[in-house]
Amino acid sequence: MIEIHDIHKTFGDNYVLKGISGVFREGMCNLIIGGSGSGKTTLLKCMVGLHEPEQGSVMYDGRDFTRMTFEERIDIRKEIGMLFQSSALFDSMTVEENIMFPLNMFTEMKTKEKKERVNFCLERVNLAGKNKLYPAELSGGMKKRVGIARAISMQPKYLFVDEPNSGLDPKTAIVIDELINELTEEYKITTVVVTHDMNSVMGIGDNIIFLYNGKKEWEGSNKEIAKTDNQQLNDFVFASKFTQAAKDKL
């Protein structure tokens, strides 16, 4: 479980996060949603330590991440997997080397064991046999799946996913969502997904935090979202005529 308390973050004069608190539960897909510029990616980066919040704390199962030194954070970071919006695969490495990289850095596993782990991760994301390809030879959806394989290679307790469906066709986007959901349930991972994709919200949103102008505007599940009377959330989720019509039928 991850708990955040009163997170504040500014960039110069731009006050991006204005005191956000919340709980992200184990074995669940916890979604952070909001419009562009609402602060959701900044919040995610504050949670993983890529940005330092000016105020507030991030607790990983009771361990205060924000107060830790670089060395102390390493232990928690070994328990974190992250899928980036751009996949962030290392260009100079093959798929196999990308997935093996954290294993090489932090484990004493033998080469055979590491290769077995890589093959297992690749099979898990339906990319068996793609070991020797370079990121430049992969499609957008395949890159995302390799990114997931790399993120789960160290058997993380916490999985962070930034805009998993950006740049993907709707069918591939659903495949990625389902994969994230399956892994979360299977390995009891605390998963935090930043998205503004409505299919993700409705498909895997067990616990949703809606940000508006740097503040937490609403919290609930995908089952509750259709019934909400929060104006900002309704404007965001049911922005199109199609989604509005779908809501009216409910």
Binding site: V48, F70, K78, I80, P102, M105
Partner: peptide, 13 residues
């Protein structure tokens, strides 16, 4: 391309 962020998330200096 966020590759440095990916290294940092892994706990690599």
């Amino acid at each position: 391309t966020e590759q440095i962020d990916a290294l940092e998330i892994m706990g690599i200096n």
